[in-house]
Design a protein around this nucleic acid. Sequence first.
DNA 1: TAATAAATGTCGTTT
DNA 2: AAACGACGTTTATTA
Lengths: 263, 263
Amino acid sequence: LLEPETGRRNKILDAPSLEKAYRAIKTGVSRHKTVVVVGNCWVDYEGRASSRLEPGERIVLFKSDGSSMVHRPRDYAPVNWQPPGSIFRTRLRDDELNVRVFRRKDNEVLEVTFDSIALVAILDLKDSGAFYLYASEEDMKQAILAQPDILEEGFRPITSEKPVAPGFIDILGVDRNNVLTLVEIKRKPATKEAVLQLKRYMDVFTIDENREVRGILVAPELARGAQKMLASLGLEFKSISPQRCSEILKSIKTKQLSDFFQA
Amino acid sequence: LLEPETGRRNKILDAPSLEKAYRAIKTGVSRHKTVVVVGNCWVDYEGRASSRLEPGERIVLFKSDGSSMVHRPRDYAPVNWQPPGSIFRTRLRDDELNVRVFRRKDNEVLEVTFDSIALVAILDLKDSGAFYLYASEEDMKQAILAQPDILEEGFRPITSEKPVAPGFIDILGVDRNNVLTLVEIKRKPATKEAVLQLKRYMDVFTIDENREVRGILVAPELARGAQKMLASLGLEFKSISPQRCSEILKSIKTKQLSDFFQA
DNA sequence: TAATAAATGTCGTTT
DNA sequence: AAACGACGTTTATTA
């Protein structure tokens, strides 16, 4: 334990010496804690590309899965980082605290060197909370499979994620007249790119020119240029919002629950 | 000033009460500081999609440009975030500290609610250090423009980033026989997608079927399926690594420096 | 504002 | 391991 006398799981050092920071970081990393370091530092990266960040004050995270990131006082994205699976090595010499993050894959090295430290936090984070993302494209697909009528009355799905030459058809089915129908789903306004994607899938099924095949693009709306392209290619559009799909799924789950408790 | 008596720029609170944390965060955000909060929290997001993160201990960053991110003890990517330009609102009630991050664009809301705090850091980070990235696609282009022979002996660039219907041709030039030559550059193994991109550019210049035009794809290597497609479309490939380009640029800069000091 | 392409993209899945 | 597509992709650039 880091502080057996207090029983606390976290260790916070406010403006520690390099020596104290070094010991805390080294111990923290070896014990698979999450380490936050704030201080004046410079950063070198060598790998798929290479980079150099001149000195300045930043927030650096070292996580126990081997991922790490260097955050400047602005921007959403870290200026430098290393994905999970990397290995840490901490060193202190010549009034410089150096953390090297090595990643076997791509032979990548990230080196952060501090010459002054404002904060070190060694954190033992307990986090098992579930994460739910709703209204994803997957949700939209599940909603259409569960209630095919929202696409069109009489539509019957046959398969989903059907592998074809260019990729995967989201849903393959037949309409009320038994005409083969390809469904491509987008959770955002469908772009020309989405139209072309559906067209590529269509091409696979239109080897026989006599056989009728329908292609329906499902999305909350059509993006600007997409309408014209869609029409010229003889494809169709059905507006369905991800939110609506999310609610359909929710109502199905609620129904399943109530059925369960009634049974 | 946060702590006028000490003159320190940063304020570190180790396991503060919700009330103390609330005041520090509210003040810090309003004064455009960088705020780090570690504690037990749950997170809701509503926008292009929606999400729910159940309670757990996380590291949350609030930056003065309006960006924010929620980091779990593992993974490179934040589990939830908000890009720059968002607006913070901090509230305390019913033993819950709530920070709402609102983004006008896409009408997105991120809400982080804490019920216990392990650390609050209000940071006044001074960071003006320059960031240099090497071996980017831009570097590759500059290297070819500076030493066209690395593409092919006798190649002469005419323009770069030439705007054409589908986008921008990386480099437009002529070969030793004055044949118009289009160059598309990729820093990673060139995929079929890159081949198609070059093909689209080629189409613009082949209105006149009699006029010869060459298309050269520059990349460290060709991805699996790309070779066949390239050949079938009559396009060419030249292997150049981003690293090599980076070194060419470096040597040019060194030369320019030595010339400067000799003069 | 819309469109297009780049990114050390990352991440999951499937071959 | 390689390939392929999705992502709340984000970001920059330009018409």
